[in-house]
């Protein structure tokens, strides 16, 4: 096992570049999926017992406002943090990745 366990990047630089552009694409995928994830998480409150339960009088089953606030804001914060990470991820390659638009100015 040890004989074959050489670092591929050391032997062929092409593999290393491949790897980087592969990461880049997955990062883009992640960026595209992030709003879907956000929409899904923000849709969770739809499943909580709502006003209909309240009409029945089952107020005990309702989610407390403090919990709801905590949930919403934590999800919100997580999404922002993920967006920050993505922003950092793309800060170096946003330029080469996007075709030059200054050419036609």
């Amino acid at each position: 096992m040890t004989g074959t366990g050489k670092d591929p990047a050391a032997t062929s630089p092409a593999v290393f570049l491949e790897h980087q552009s592969y990461r880049r694409r997955r990062l883009m995928d992640a960026a595209r999926l992030l709003p879907l994830l956000g929409a899904g998480l923000f849709a969770v409150p739809l499943l909580w017992p709502g006003p209909k339960a309240a009409i029945v009088g089952d107020t005990d089953g309702l989610v407390a406002m403090s919990d709801a606030i905590t949930y919403i804001f934590v999800v919100w914060g997580v999404l922002i943090a993920a967006s920050v990470l993505f922003g950092f991820g793309v800060r170096y390659w946003a330029r080469p990745e996007t075709p030059p638009e200054t050419r036609q100015g």
Binding site: A43, P45, L46, W48, P49, G50, P51, A54, T59, L62, V63, A64, M65, S66, A68, I69
Partner: peptide
């Protein structure tokens, strides 16, 4: 204090929320 208030529970209409 929030939990004790008159809006202390989750009473949002799902349709409106979405």
């Amino acid at each position: 204090r929030i939990d004790a208030s008159e809006i202390g529970q989750w009473r949002v209409d799902g349709g409106r929320w979405a």
